[in-house]
Design a protein around this nucleic acid. Structure first.
Lengths: 337, 337
DNA sequence: CTGTTAGCGCGTTCAT
DNA sequence: ATGAACGCGCTAACAG
């Protein structure tokens, strides 16, 4: 594999001139540029990013550490991140933690070793250690989707509390009074906030704590299935379920179908996070949709601003609004005999 | 950020000793090792992969270039690749070409610049140029899923022709005689082979070319939708559709639903590639399922073998069998008045 | 507009 | 069991 020196020699210039041609930095005469480019093509010269990054101490790579790209919500977030990153000449390394703290720690270590220029992190738990680890290395960082306690850090997230509040308000408006929440892990801020919003909506409707029915589990389909089964066995039985994310929602739908319950006739179902239309789910879900793409975009913009701006800038928390999309999965409560 | 030298000075040893501690290479006394490790922790020293790879001329990174990880088939292939890679201490960089030759070319260039140790490539078209580009740089390469003409190269793929043959055989066994194929682009080998398998099945059933109904478009949902609409308008109308991949299948399902056709009562539907159960699609599809995970695994194993073995090894083509999974979307042909 | 000098952080080679 | 010297390919800083 030829090096920049090989190109330089053959073109009769110095290596730095070749460097300037490649990077379009500094001045090079048109004539020289043409000659150098001809030699580059002739030799199939491919610049070595490793050497370049090593020397310049910049990789132009961002790390996106999230829980699971299989989830359409995260797929969309990732698109937002990549689009903004690419527009600005950055590549993105994507890592899935599967909500596992060990995996998260391993990835962070590897990514620091790779000297990525910045981190976009969806923390597995609300503990400050991972954030502190990155900050100690002076690598810019934006936390996505979730809050972490005990540290100053930029955060971009959706408004879980308000979204849950309005979604449950809607369910209440359909006449439901007994609503179960199938929530995520209590160690994740979004799960807590969605339960908070649910409680506020119940309270505003004049219902007290005895009307509450809250289940905590993982943000996945299996948990959704199990929590739905538990909710169906509760006494008195709820008339509607509020799934705290899309996978829980799909799991609940599965459990309902298996148990022979029709949605929305026999049981209302709403969920947090939208579901892509190509899933061809029927009946289609009423949801609180976070602006996933915009979350990715804005987090990346914030990170890029940190990369070019002074490290002293104030940390800020950007909270994006959630949209309630009313479809067919939760109708007016039917009176049963 | 501290360097290996900072650690060395503070520990009162030479940099190479620190290097030996980190890499567990060569001999270091237990005492020295302990002291060095203490300093590493104290200083939050993070080794610089860039420098290491630069020096050793090895990145321990593989590139996986495919069309679209949003597709569950590719998600599964990617898992197979990552699992094998990680087990062997390699990281994977994943790139989506979206079936766009320009994107593919851009990614290949960037990845070569990054000096990845090897490529797993799902070529956008069946032209040899991308493969040659990589081979010219002497970087090991395994082609996944598709064949390319005009080059010697390792290939791991599913048996599209045989899979299509057996799937269409099944459709014929249900009494269907007029079957439309909604195929992918004629420039992709799998699309051609699936049509070939379809033709062989028809011929074996004693049907001639006049029974054929072939549409070519992209391997995506929109195309599936459009081709299904065209097929429904054909004269005589087919009684079953064979979608050449899962996205085409989902698109076709959508078109059928919109047009008010029931599956399988009014129209049979089968497709190539399985669909994950959590999609909650109803009615569930009868498919020819490729061993996606195994494809990823075997391709990666082959690539790793190339990395450690002699570059002179014979190229081979590994063709994996396809499994027909019979579910509900294509039943016995109903006689209509 | 172009070149010279120097060194980024690490691991290989050889020496002790 | 440990260290010294060197260089990987490239670009920052400065000179001309």
């Amino acid at each position: 594999m030829p090096t920049i020196r090989d190109v330089a020699e053959r073109a009769g210039v110095s290596p730095i001139t070749v460097s300037r041609v490649i990077n379009r930095s500094g001045y090079v005469s048109l004539e020289t540029r043409a000659r150098v480019e001809a030699v580059i093509a002739e030799l199939d010269y491919v610049p070595n990013t490793l050497a370049r990054s090593f020397r310049s101490r910049k990789t132009r790579v961002l790390a996106l550490v999230l829980t699971d790209v299989t989830n359409p919500f995260w797929t969309t977030v990732a698109r937002g991140v990549e689009d903004v990153a690419n527009q600005n000449g950055f590549n993105v390394i994507l890592c899935n933690t599967d909500e596992d703290e060990t995996k998260q720690a391993d990835y962070l270590r590897v990514l620091l070793q790779k000297r990525v220029d910045g981190f976009l992190l969806v923390p597995v738990r609300n503990t400050p250690e991972p954030v502190k680890l990155i900050q100690r290395q002076n690598v810019p960082l934006v936390v996505l989707d979730r809050q972490v306690g005990g540290v100053e850090v930029d955060v971009v997230r959706g408004d879980s509390e308000e979204g849950a509040f309005r979604l449950v308000q809607y369910v209440l408006s359909q006449g439901h009074r007994r609503i179960a929440v199938l929530a995520g892990p209590a160690s994740i801020s979004t799960a807590v906030q969605r339960v908070d919003g649910y409680r506020r909506a119940l309270r505003q409707a004049g219902l007290d704590a005895s009307a509450e029915l809250v289940y905590y589990a993982e943000y996945d389909q299996t948990s959704g299935c199990q929590m739905a089964e538990q909710a169906l066995a509760a006494e008195p039985r709820p008339t509607a379920l509020f799934a705290a994310n899309n996978f829980i929602g799909i799991g609940a739908l599965q459990a309902l179908r298996r148990a022979g319950w029709r949605v929305p006739e026999d049981m209302g179902l709403v969920c947090f996070d939208d579901v892509p239309s190509w899933l061809a789910i029927d009946p289609f879900l009423t949801v609180a949709a976070q602006p996933a793409y915009a979350m990715g975009q804005q987090a990346t913009e914030r990170l890029l601003a940190r990369l070019s701006g002074p490290a002293t800038a104030q940390c800020q928390e950007i909270v994006l609004p959630v949209e309630i999309i009313i479809r067919r999965s939760c109708g007016i409560l039917q009176e049963t005999g």
